[in-house]
Amino acid sequence: MFGIGDFARLGLVSVRMLRHYDAIGLLRPAHVDPVTGYRSYQAEQLSRLNRIVAIKDLGFTLEQVGAILDEQVGTQELHGMVRLRRAQLEAQINADLARLRSVEARLRTIETEGRMRTAEVVLKKVDPVRVAQLSARAASYESRDIEPVIVPLFDEICRRVEAASVRITGPGLAHYLPDDDGAVIVHACLPVNVPPGGHGLDGGLDGGFDGGFDVVDLPAIETAATIIHRGPMMAVGSTFQALAHWIEENGYRSSTLAREISLHVPVNHDEWVTELQIEVVPC
Rank of each mutant, 00 (worst) to 15 (best):
G3P: 09
R9W: 02
L10H: 09
G11C: 06
V13K: 01
D22H: 04
A23C: 00
R28Y: 00
R28M: 06
P34A: 00
V35D: 03
G37E: 00
R39W: 02
R39Y: 03
Q45V: 04
R48E: 07
I52A: 04
I52K: 04
I52W: 04
V53L: 10
I55H: 06
K56E: 07
G66K: 09
A67P: 01
D70I: 03
E71A: 14
T75H: 13
E77D: 12
V82W: 09
R86F: 07
Q88M: 12
L89M: 14
E90W: 02
N94S: 12
A95W: 04
A95S: 11
D96C: 03
R99L: 08
R101I: 00
R101T: 07
A105I: 06
A105V: 09
L107V: 14
R108A: 15
I110L: 15
I110T: 10
E113Q: 13
R117I: 06
A119W: 05
A119S: 11
V121W: 04
V121P: 07
K124T: 15
D127I: 12
R130G: 03
A132K: 12
Q133L: 07
A136C: 05
A136R: 08
A139I: 08
S140F: 07
E147P: 01
P148M: 09
I150R: 14
V151L: 05
V151E: 05
I157N: 04
R159W: 06
V161W: 11
E162K: 11
A164N: 05
T169C: 08
G172P: 07
L173I: 14
A174C: 15
A174V: 10
D179A: 15
D180R: 13
D181H: 13
G182S: 09
A188D: 07
P191K: 08
N193I: 00
V194G: 01
V194L: 06
D202N: 08
L205E: 11
G207N: 03
F213D: 01
D217I: 10
D217A: 05
P219F: 06
T223A: 06
T223S: 05
T226N: 12
I228P: 08
P232E: 08
A235C: 12
V236L: 13
S254M: 15
A258I: 13
L263A: 10
L263P: 05
V265P: 01
V267N: 02
N268K: 13
H269P: 10
D270Y: 03
V273S: 08
I278L: 15
E279L: 05
